[in-house]
Nucleic acid binder design. Structure first.
Lengths: 135, 135
DNA sequence: CAGCATCCCGATGGATACTG
DNA sequence: CAGTATCCATCGGGATGCTG
């Protein structure tokens, strides 16, 4: 077997979007249902587990745990356990998490600024394309 | 029945993260697997269907169609059909779509800037938490 | 209080085949 | 070329029950 014979993994090129620009990584981190909301909720300061859950109506214990663990793993959130009875666990943003806050803020502003326009566009599209399963 | 009796919809408060700030809307729009990548790919200019598909290795016809339709519905992308043979369809960003480009750029920069730090954090966490299913 | 362990369902999205 | 139509596997995430 000569060199370059097996497993060449073609992958033609990819003008822009490919793996080179790290968009996919960010999306994998914040694209899920709760991560950004948790970050937003931690922006004002430290929160305890139950506090977070109450502040995020609809989140299950399981998902809050998972979300907060992943954020901790990524270094966006710090977790502090106070070995008391009953147990007390605090969550806060790290510097890294705080830096990400700016992104979220920009995103929220963009959303607020263009919300109406998007809603209009959707109405128009839906009217022009009745009975479409796109939605 | 007196006023204010039915359907009070409790919903305690929701300090920050609730529906009021439009984060959820943005995430519903860009949190999927391909939307942002398509937008990135359209940033340099107009693209045709197959061009997009080739530029986005791994995307299926179905998903490209769905993604591009949703973006069109939201008013981020404009679709132009040239009734030729064979058919030719062009996609380009609208002004709205272009404005969103800035968000994506910021996200990409943030990702690039902190990629290493996050990777380190993950390694450390994985080492400190062996055999965890969090990942 | 702050979780972990299970079970399970619906949505997302990939593969494939067909069409104007 | 630019789609549409199906079928199907995966998996994110909700509900529930138990524990230190």
């Amino acid at each position: 077997m000569s060199v370059g014979h097996t497993a060449v993994t073609v992958l033609p090129v990819s003008s822009y979007a490919e793996e080179d620009c790290g968009i996919r990584e960010v999306l994998d981190r914040i694209g899920d249902k709760w991560s950004v909301l948790v970050i937003v909720e931690l922006t004002p300061g430290v929160r305890r587990f139950r506090q977070l859950q109450r502040a995020l109506p609809g989140i299950s214990q399981r998902m809050l745990t998972l979300t907060v663990r992943r954020l901790e793993r990524d270094g966006l959130v710090a977790r502090t356990v106070h070995p008391t009875v009953p147990p007390q666990v605090e969550y806060r943003l790290t510097d890294l998490g705080n830096s990400f806050t700016h992104m979220v803020k920009a995103l929220a502003e963009w959303s607020a600024d263009h919300r109406d326009r998007i809603a209009d566009s959707r109405r128009a599209w839906d009217e022009a394309n009745p009975g479409s399963d796109v939605r």
